[in-house]
Amino acid sequence: MSEAQETVETRGDERVDLIKVDTNNDGKPDVWAADTDGDGKADLFQFDTDQDGKVNVTMTDLDEDGTPDQVVDGDGGHPPAA
């Protein structure tokens, strides 16, 4: 049985991926930076650290000061679009 993942709070309800990066050249993104409140600044950051195509770590920066406010395992309730 799998454990429930923790959900992170974001600044807004929308998601616009500002960057998607394929760091290991396998053709699939493994780093995402998203804007959730429409101000054009990233406040949701996600990482696939084991190259399985799923988010392993999610961080939010609610005040957009460059310091993570919350870091959780998994997608934090905000899976990237395919």
Rank of each mutant, 00 (worst) to 15 (best):
D65K: 05
G38Y: 04
T23N: 11
N25K: 14
T10M: 01
V71W: 11
D17F: 07
T7N: 10
G40M: 07
F47R: 09
A33M: 15
L62H: 06
G74P: 00
D35C: 08
D13V: 02
E3Q: 12
D63T: 04
E6F: 14
L62Y: 09
Q46H: 07
Q70W: 00
D61Y: 09
V31S: 04
S2D: 11
A34F: 11
K41C: 05
D63A: 00
G27Y: 08
D48R: 04
A82C: 00
G76H: 07
M1T: 12
G66H: 03
L62E: 06
L44P: 08
K41P: 01
D30I: 07
A4L: 14
N56V: 01
G27C: 01
N24I: 06
V21K: 13
G40T: 06
V72W: 09
V21W: 10
V8P: 00
A4W: 10
W32L: 06
D61R: 08
G53H: 02
I19R: 13
K54C: 08
T60C: 03
W32H: 01
N56Y: 02
V21C: 01
G12R: 01
D63M: 02
D50E: 10
G12H: 08
V16S: 11
N24P: 04
V57D: 03
D30E: 14
A4V: 10
H78V: 02
D43G: 02
D26A: 03
A42L: 09
L44K: 00
P68H: 04
P29V: 05
V71L: 12
N24F: 08
D37H: 11
E64D: 13
E9G: 02
T36I: 01
D75V: 05
I19L: 14
M1L: 13
T10H: 03
K28F: 11
P68V: 07
T49G: 13
Q5E: 15
E64A: 13
D17E: 15
D52K: 05
K54Y: 11
M1I: 12
R15I: 08
W32K: 06
V16K: 13
A4H: 11
E14T: 15
D75C: 02
G76C: 01
D37A: 05
K20C: 01
Q51P: 00
D43Q: 06
L44Q: 03
I19A: 12
K20T: 14
T10D: 02
D30T: 04
P80A: 05
D50Y: 09
F47V: 15
A34Y: 10
Q46D: 08
G40L: 09
M59W: 13
N24A: 06
E6V: 15
P29N: 01
K54G: 03
D39A: 04
K41S: 12
